Simulated assay, not measured.
Amino acid sequence: MRIAVFSDSHDHIANLRRAVLRANREEAELLIHCGDLISPFMLPYLEQFNGPVHAIYGNNAGDRHLIAGRCAASTGKITHHGDHGILVAASWRIAIEHYPKWARSLAASGDFDLVCCGHSHVFQAEWLGRCLLLNPGELLGKDAPPTFALLDTADGSVRQISVGEQLSLDDRDL
C-alpha cells in the first residue's frame, strides 16, 4: 500500500490541490494529514483524493466545530481524529501526532509501526527500532519548497515528493 503523508498546508489551496493530484498520480491509496490544515474550505480539496483521508488538527486548528461537522458530512471519505489519530492500514499500526516531540515518544513506545507528525516544517524519515517516524515537511512552501512523503508499506521505503514551487492561487495548471 502507498500512503501519502501531508502536513502544514496552512490554507495554501494551490499547494494542497497540487499535492492531492500528485498523490493520486503516484497511486497512493491512503492520505494522512498531520495537522495545520486550518480552514474548513480546504476540505473539498482533500476530498479529491482517490482514497480515504485521515486528519488531525495541529496547533493552528482553525474552526474546530466546522471542520468536525464537515468531515462527518463528507460521505465517510475524511476521518477527522481530533488532536491525535490512531488507525491500522496494510497491517501497519499508525499514530498521527502534530508535534515531533510527542511523535518521537510514540515511535519509541514500540506500539506502532508508523508515527506521522508535522509542525517543524522539516522533512524527516527515521527508523526507531521497528517504527518509522515520518515528518513530510510542509505543504505551505514558506520555509522550504512544498513537499509531502510517500510511503510504500511493501518495503518500508519513503520518498519525499516535491509539489513544485509555491504557486499563485490562480495557477491555471491545476
Rank of each mutant, 00 (worst) to 15 (best):
A23N: 08
N24W: 05
R64S: 07
S109P: 04
L134W: 03
R130F: 00
G58C: 00
E26W: 04
L66Y: 06
I3C: 12
G141T: 06
A19E: 01
P52M: 15
Y99L: 13
D36W: 08
V53K: 11
A4W: 06
V5I: 13
L46N: 12
D152P: 15
N15R: 08
H65C: 04
W102F: 05
G141E: 11
C131A: 10
L66E: 06
G82V: 09
R159T: 10
A73T: 06
D173Y: 01
V158G: 14
A107F: 06
D152G: 14
H81N: 07
H119C: 12
C34R: 07
D8I: 05
L87G: 12
Y45D: 11
Q124L: 09
G129V: 00
L16G: 00
E26V: 04
L134T: 02
I3F: 12
I56W: 01
H84D: 09
L133Y: 02
N24A: 07
T79V: 13
D155I: 01
D63I: 12
K142C: 02
N24P: 03
D8F: 06
G129C: 02
A55V: 13
R93G: 02
D63N: 15
R18A: 15
E26R: 12
S39M: 14
T75I: 09
P44Q: 11
V20L: 01
I13M: 02
L169A: 13
F148G: 03
V20P: 07
T147N: 04
I67D: 07
A95L: 03
D63F: 12
N24Y: 05
N59D: 11
D111Q: 10
